[in-house]
Nucleic acid binder design. Structure first.
Lengths: 168, 168
DNA sequence: CTGAATTTTCAAAATTTTTTGAAAATATAA
DNA sequence: TTATATTTTCAAAAAATTTTGAAAATTCAG
């Protein structure tokens, strides 16, 4: 397989992969393109390479910057903005975990806490089972939360990073 | 908050949560409904409770059964099939991890392995950087794979489960 | 400032995904 | 076996999401 072909295949697969994770295809493709690109690219470069419109590139690039996966890079002498992806995949994973935790896990745990405060007879079987399920989810969510926090801090945390190394 | 209200809220939030993870809203809602339901439900029960069509219930229930999150339960004397969700959330999480690993991570790692076999000059800067990114992703993917395997096997594995307990 | 280059916005169009519901298939009781 | 209940399928409709592209806003060199 040739390099160009391999790049193309990677970009397409990364895009398909993304859709399974609730990320839209184009955003994942742009991310993939920037991952395998030697230099930072402009919006026009991306438009041309992926054959998509200016507005589309602009919105999805913004999304990637919001996720902390892509950086705006200023190249002196060049007028246009350039964009580059973080290439250390461990950092990418960490960043995604951090964001999803903040955007999804934390609010869900908060909601579960509220749902635990229903006013119902403690002896009501229905209510009892509901509370069991809810607090079970909350407990597991909190555990996940702690583990993820440690992973995020692994670089600064000798203990966690040695444990993680044991799995490598 | 009343129990009925809390259930409703839980079902809706779980549905919204699902869409962020590439699961369709209805499937997540059915899952939530079964989670907080005291008895197993029939397709008709679900139709009525969530106000959705028969076909929709049928397809999504099948999806949940495929994911191993819901079981068909035979109730003697009753003609209709009943369905019940696994309520131990740790098992639910394990099952989801197992399936996603099989359906997504494993194929992705396989693809990355293929992409490493491009025929290009090892000195070509483009090619070199591409291979670095690809093998970086593959390495991280493999690490995740190992960690997830251990989590899945945690119940049967003293070592892992004691490590996981340390985080609780 | 001015004006050209670049970026952003957003309503409308295109596409993709989900849902419906009726028909077909299957299962079960009598 | 026959009649009825139940489940499954799937083409068409509806809904949701993504994409386009042109206009508006912003940036910046001169």
């Amino acid at each position: 397989m040739k390099l160009t072909e391999a790049k193309e295949q990677f970009i397409n697969s990364w895009g398909a992969f993304g859709t399974q994770w609730g990320i839209n295809r184009t955003m994942a493709q742009i991310h993939a393109l920037l991952l395998v690109s030697t230099q930072p690219l402009t919006q026009d470069d991306i438009m041309e390479y992926l054959n998509i419109s200016r507005g589309n590139v602009n919105m999805n690039i913004r999304g990637l910057v919001d996720w902390g996966l892509v950086e705006r890079v200023i190249i002196s002498g060049e007028r246009k903005d350039h964009f580059a992806a973080e290439k250390d995949i461990w950092k990418v994973a960490t960043q995604i975990i951090k964001e999803r935790k903040k955007r999804e896990l934390d609010p869900m745990i908060k909601l579960l806490g509220q749902l635990e405060n229903i006013d119902a007879d403690k002896k009501d079987k229905e209510a009892k089972q509901f509370l069991e399920v809810i607090s079970g989810i909350k407990r597991t969510g909190n555990q996940a939360d702690k583990i993820l926090d440690l992973m995020i801090k692994a670089e600064e945390n000798w203990f966690t990073s040695s444990i993680l190394k044991m799995f490598k």
